[in-house]
Simulated scan of single mutants.
Amino acid sequence: MDSNNIKAILFDLDNTLIETYQAGELAMQKTHELLKTSLAVDDDTIINICDKFMEKLLHQTFDPAAGRTIDEVRVRLWEDSIKESVDSCSTPSLAAQCYYMWKNSRLELLKLSPEISNLLKQLRRKYKLLLLTNGIAQTQWEKVKAAGCEGFFDRIVVGGDYAEQKPYPSIFNVCFDLLQVEPQDCIMVGDSLETDIQGGFNAQVRATVWINGAGDALPVGSVTPDYTLSTVLDLEDILAQLN
Rank of each mutant, 00 (worst) to 15 (best):
G213I: 06
I238F: 05
T224F: 04
A207C: 01
S230W: 02
E236F: 04
T231V: 13
T231H: 15
Q204P: 05
A217D: 12
I238A: 07
D196Q: 03
L233S: 08
T224E: 14
G200E: 00
A214D: 11
Q198A: 08
G200V: 03
S222M: 15
Y227R: 00
V223L: 06
D216G: 07
V232G: 05
D226R: 14
L233Y: 01
A214G: 12
T208V: 01
R206M: 09
G200H: 01
L218R: 12
G200R: 03
L229S: 06
T195R: 09
A214L: 14
T228L: 09
E194M: 12
E236D: 14
V209W: 02
A207I: 00
L218H: 15
N202L: 10
T195A: 12
S222R: 14
D226E: 15
L218V: 10
L235R: 06
T195S: 14
L233N: 08
E194H: 07
T224N: 11
V232F: 09
L229D: 06
L218G: 10
P225Y: 08
S230P: 04
W210L: 05
G215M: 08
P219T: 09
D234A: 11
A214H: 12
A240S: 11
A214I: 13
V205R: 00
A214Y: 12
S222N: 15
R206N: 07
S222V: 11
W210P: 01
L235F: 07
G200N: 03
P219N: 14
G199R: 02
V209P: 03
I238G: 06
D234P: 00
V232L: 08
A207P: 01
E194Y: 05
I211F: 09
G215K: 09
G221K: 00
S230Y: 03
E194W: 02
N202Y: 07
G200P: 06
T228W: 07
D237Y: 13
T224G: 05
T208M: 00
P219V: 11
E236I: 06
T228C: 14
Y227Q: 00
I238T: 09
R206K: 13
G215I: 07
F201I: 14
L235P: 02
G200Q: 04
F201R: 12
Y227F: 13
Q198W: 02
G200K: 01
P219H: 09
V223H: 05
P219I: 12
P219Y: 14
N202H: 15
V223D: 04
G213P: 09
E236Q: 13
L235C: 05
G215N: 11
D216C: 13
T195P: 06
L239H: 05
E236G: 03
T208K: 00
A203V: 05
W210C: 05
T224K: 13
V220Y: 09
L218E: 15
L239S: 06
L229H: 07
Y227M: 06
S222T: 15
